[in-house]
Every structure is written in structure tokens, then in C-alpha cells.
Nucleic acid binder design. Structure first.
Lengths: 341, 341
DNA sequence: GCACGGCGTGTTACCGTTCACATAGCCGGC
DNA sequence: GCCGGCTATGTGAACGGTAACACGCCGTGC
């Protein structure tokens, strides 16, 4: 009977290097008290045997899996997908693997299931894309010791730390930009009325108009998609006073652009349009879209930092932190001064 | 000193139920030889103690983590993000968790790193989004016993099983549809020339034209984005003979639509346009885009099925399977019969 | 009456780490 | 010249499950 093929474990490395398995463990974990010569001998042995440590065994005893969980919603859309990417990128550089648990609705029940699934797999922490408060509140049910960070729009309670983009500031940038170009006021085509992110964008837009003493047209809120933008754009196209439109995201802006084009209103000569997100093709819309860019990579880094910070120092935690990432305005061809009358 | 808070383990459940821990294990794993009455007693004990089994311990001994790895590229774009979603969805219903490892380029080295990272975390298998052969070849370096499935475009070697959408068939559907409407021929705006998916779409388009005896205009290949579509669309708009355009994806189609609109060529009255992918807003383009829809959910299910099939019956594996998922044509408003002359 | 097989259950070893503790050697101070 | 403390290393016991095996009990066939 041929020798049974077995994967090399710590003991094999130890034997080859002529030390105990514990010394091998010390080398792996960078413990200080290992003679330099021993260390290199062990490393060589590991190399020659192509040793990889068994993380399951490590997890069993340390209760750290070096994996973190990510709860995501509508991850096929650009925003969530970008957040996922940003978080995964940050996690990878920090030596973590990311396990995903997508939810199909924003109901609390689904969030609880996702948390449960992740906690069974012993993730060290959870980052949840939480556009609505139901998600955040679901996180509160996580078993004690499992730290959660909510990223995205809903930063309500003071029990869960959050990281989010400064939607109000983004809306201000967009609105300010249009006012500075000389527009008398700015119209807004908003997202779903019950999404905090959409509400914040409304607030930033409205406040900026107030401060500038500009008239505040009624905000129209509905959803995030192009169909809504197109529908609303058709109305706005009929209003000769509407020379500047700030859309709650790029998809809406796409619809608005189409409606304006259709109605024969030229962009940016007659009407200026600003979006929010900086989707992949928004720079190639016609005209290229001026938009507010969210720094998803930074959001990922920050939320991970929050998590790791807690992992190393779990005991004396202060109140949960709430980080806000500033967005940028990307000026392209869809904005210009208003037409002279 | 207060009693140390400990999580409940199998032993606790066993004690409460008055059985051995092994019996608890049997209940958990649905072993046949457990008296019904014992089973319910154990289940009640588990319930009342809120027991969750420690998957790390389970993984250690069974060498099965019930986690699978997903290697993804450009996961912020709609296609890859949808595949990720489809795979995660299928995995979840099969009781698996998905860990992601995104790669920033398609270089073999990066793939190897991703495989390594995932295998350290003891994933049971790997599904890789593999739009180019370099990814597939990287998978071949996976440690023995770690099964990999390549999903997407590059189905070259006979060492790795693949699941992919039938790009050629999709292209045929699109081309056929346009020919059936009465167009003399169909122009094609293709993706990157070195991507198999793009090549297959060219082939399907060209073959259909051949078979129909239609003239075959030169194919133009460049990239996947709207900028390219717009650029190419400007040229095609000048050609009065070009009444039907098949684009390799929806983003390209968006650019083409814009260019045509700009040039004053009406869609679909003067020119018909077809896309590929069925992106979220393509139904709200103006006009709504006729396009080829890929069934990402089905791709996810199939690739997972391939993986699981191998996991239960790892020994007598035949040659790697190559599954092909048929796409659908979604007819919307961007296609119509050619103008009468 | 006894060997036998299946059922239900318990006992024990083992998976591959890390952690707590023990130990041996060395150095310096008094 | 001994002792205390530091350094480098080894030993044994967890961690929480599953697998292999043993064991008692029962019904069955001869």
C-alpha cells in the first residue's frame, strides 16, 4: 500500500527543522524570542515542504477567522458593487478575506438571517451596506462580541458605528456649482423618499438654495432609476424657467438628459444637469455628465479601519464612531451658464 | 469572581438533554439511527441554549468549510456583479457561504495569489469569473483537491470545467431578429478584440449574415464602454446603408444611440439598434433597448452545481464539463423594419 | 438455546493550531 | 558562588467538533 498522501502540517516542518512545533508556531506569528538562526532554519523548512498553515485549526483556538462578513443589498447596481469592491480591497490589504451575504429585501428578518449565517462562519466582524434603518437595527441583534459597522445612508442610532458619504455636502457642491454659474435656482429630481441618502441630498440642495436666497422649487422624489428621471425630465422640459437640474444619481440624470434632448432643450446651452455617483459611463453621456463622485475606496478603508480598531481594543470602546467621507464634484460638459434672455 | 461567560457547545447541549455529545452530533448531521424521542429532546435542548455549532471545529476535522471562493474581475461592472450575485444566490440556497477575492488585472500572477488566499482559508472549491484564458490557466495551479470552475468567456483548455453564456447564440438571435425585420444586413460594434466573449459575438453575428446570404460589413472591435460606442456610432450615422446595428453590449449601445440621435438619425424609424446584457436601465433608454439577456442566475446555479457534483463524488471524475447557458432576446422599442426607400 | 445482525448510544481518538506553563542555559550583581 | 531574571525552547493541554469503534439490547432464524 502506497504511503498515504498527506498535507504537510506544523509537525512536519518542526521535524525537518529539528525544533518543536511550538517554535514553528512562534516563527509564524512573529514572536520575539526566537533565535535568528532558528528562524531561518524553520522558514527554509516551511519553504521546502510548501507548508501552509491550517486556518481552521487556528480559528478554532484563537476565535479569530481573519474573515469578515459583508451584508449587501442590490449588489448588482453600481453603488453597492463599488462599496463591496472598496471594502474587499481594504480588507485584502489588511490580510482579511471577505465573505458576502446578500439580502434580497431590506427587511429586518433578512438582515438577521445574514448576520446569523456570517456569525456561524465565525467572521471577526461585519460590515453592512445599510441604506435604510431596518438594516442597522438588524445589526443590533448580532451576538455579543461580533462587531458591526453600517456603511451607507442610515446612520440613526448610537449603537452601531457608521461610515457614510456626506450626501448633503455632495448636494451642496452640485447646487452651489449651478448657482455659481449664474442660474437663478436649481431643480431637484430626487431618489426614493424613504431612503435617508435621498433625503440628505434633498436637504443639502434645499439648504444651499435657502442660503443663497434662491427660490426653492418643490422637490420631486420617486426612485433611483432612469425611467423616473425621464418621466420627471419631461415635465421639467416644459418649464422654461428650469435651467438647472440636480439629479439624485446618474441614472436619473440619464433619463433627464434623454427627456430634455427629446423635447429639444439643449444641454448645457439651455439646461444644465448634474448627477450623483459618477457611474462608469457618465463621462460619456451626451454631453458628459457633471456629477458628484463618492470615494468608495475611502469608505471601504474607513469602515475596515473602524472594525480593526475595535478588534484590537475591544474592551474600552467609547460611543460608536460616525465617519463621514466628503464627496467630490466632477465638472464635465453638462453644466454651463444659463442662456441669456 | 463571576462565572466566566462561555458560549454553549455541544457538551452543554448533551448534558441538558442527558445524552452524549456524539448523539448531539448525530442529530445535527441527520444520522439515521437516533430515536425520535431522543432527537426531539436534543433539539429542544439546542433551542433553549441557543446552540450554534462551531464551524471552525467542524472544518478542522471534516476538511470541508462549506465556504467557496469566488475570483472576480471588475466586479463593479454590471456583468461581473451580476455573476457574483447569481453565484452567491445559488450558493446560499445550497448552504454555502461565498468568500470573494477580486483581482485588479487579469494577469496569471494575480490569479495565483487569489487562489492561494482562498485555499488557505480552506474553501471547498473556487468559481472564477474568467473572461480571458490567463485566468483559466491560473486556476490550473490550484492545489490538488481544490476544484475550480471557470465561468465566463474563456473556455479553452480541457482541464478546467466551464460555464458560460452562449455568446454566439445571443449574437445570432440579435442578428436574426434584425434580418427578419427586413434589414438588408447588420453592422456590428464589438468589444475588445482580445476577449473571447467579444470574439464569439462577432462569430455569431458573422455566421448569421453568411447563412442569410447578407453582405458582411467589417466588424469594428475596441472596448466595452459607451465612449467607443459613441465614436463608432458617429461613423455609422454617416452611412445611409447602415440601418441595423448590433452592439456587443448595452454600454456600447448607449453610445451608439447617442451618436445617432446627435446625427439626427431616428431610432428605430431610420436605424435599429440591439445591445447585449440587459443592464438595469436599458429598458429606459430612449428608445428602450432591444437587447440580449444573459441568465446570470442560471449561470450561478450551474457553476455551483458543477462544483457540488464534484465535491460529493470527487474520485471518478470524467473529463471536465462545459456547460453553455442560452441567452434570450428581449425585444423593445429600438428595433423596427428598415425605412422604405 | 444460541449465534447473529441491526439499532441506539457511549467512549475515545484525532483534526492542526495556539496558549500556559515548565525548563535549561546564560549573564550580571552582590 | 549563588540567585534572580531574561532568553530560547519544549511539553502538554485545550479548542469543539466528527469518525471509528465498542457495547448492550432486542428480535430472528435454525
Amino acid at each position: 500500500m502506497p504511503a498515504k498522501k498527506r498535507v504537510t502540517v506544523m509537525r512536519d516542518v518542526a521535524k525537518l527543522a529539528g525544533v518543536s512545533h511550538q517554535t514553528v508556531s512562534r516563527v509564524l506569528n512573529d514572536h520575539p524570542n526566537v533565535k535568528e538562526e532558528t528562524r531561518t532554519r524553520v522558514l527554509e523548512a516551511m519553504q521546502s515542504l510548501n507548508y501552509r498553515r491550517n486556518l481552521a485549526a487556528r480559528t478554532l483556538v484563537t476565535r479569530r477567522s481573519h474573515t469578515l462578513g459583508l451584508i449587501g443589498f442590490e449588489t448588482t447596481l453600481f453603488g453597492p458593487a463599488s462599496m463591496l469592491y472598496g471594502i474587499e480591497d481594504a480588507a485584502r490589504t489588511a490580510g482579511y478575506l471577505v465573505s458576502i451575504a446578500t439580502i434580497r429585501t431590506l427587511e429586518r428578518r433578512e438582515v438577521l438571517e445574514a448576520v446569523d449565517r456570517l456569525s456561524q462562519h465565525a467572521v471577526d466582524g461585519i460590515i453592512a451596506i445599510a441604506p435604510k434603518p431596518s438594516v442597522t437595527s438588524g445589526l443590533l441583534q448580532a451576538p455579543p462580541g461580533l462587531y458591526c459597522v453600517a456603511v451607507g445612508g442610515a446612520g440613526d442610532p448610537d449603537a452601531v458605528p457608521t461610515v457614510r458619504v456626506d450626501n448633503a455636502a455632495g448636494a451642496r457642491l452640485a447646487t452651489r456649482h449651478l448657482l455659481d454659474l449664474g442660474h437663478r435656482t436649481v431643480h431637484h429630481v430626487g431618489g426614493p423618499p424613504d431612503w435617508p441618502e435621498a433625503q440628505e441630498r434633498v436637504a443639502g440642495w434645499r439648504d444651499t438654495l435657502y442660503e443663497a436666497g434662491a427660490p426653492v422649487p418643490p422637490a420631486a422624489l420617486d426612485s433611483w432609476n432612469a425611467e423616473w428621471g425621464h418621466r420627471r425630465g419631461q415635465d421639467l422640459a416644459l418649464d422654461p424657467e428650469a435651467t438647472a437640474i440636480f439629479c439624485a444619481n446618474d441614472r436619473i440624470a440619464l433619463g433627464v438628459l434623454r427627456a430634455l434632448h427629446e423635447a429639444g432643450r439643449r444641454v448645457p446651452e439651455e439646461v444644465s444637469v448634474v448627477g450623483f455617483d459618477d457611474m462608469p459611463d457618465s463621462g460619456y453621456f451626451l454631453p458628459p455628465l457633471t456629477t458628484v463622485r463618492q470615494d468608495f475606496a475611502e469608505i471601504g478603508r474607513r469602515s475596515l479601519a473602524l472594525l480593526l480598531e475595535h478588534l484590537v481594543d475591544a474592551e474600552n470602546a467609547g460611543p460608536p464612531a460616525h465617519l463621514v467621507v466628503p464627496p467630490d464634484l466632477i465638472v464635465r460638459g453638462s453644466t454651463a451658464p444659463p442662456p441669456r434672455r
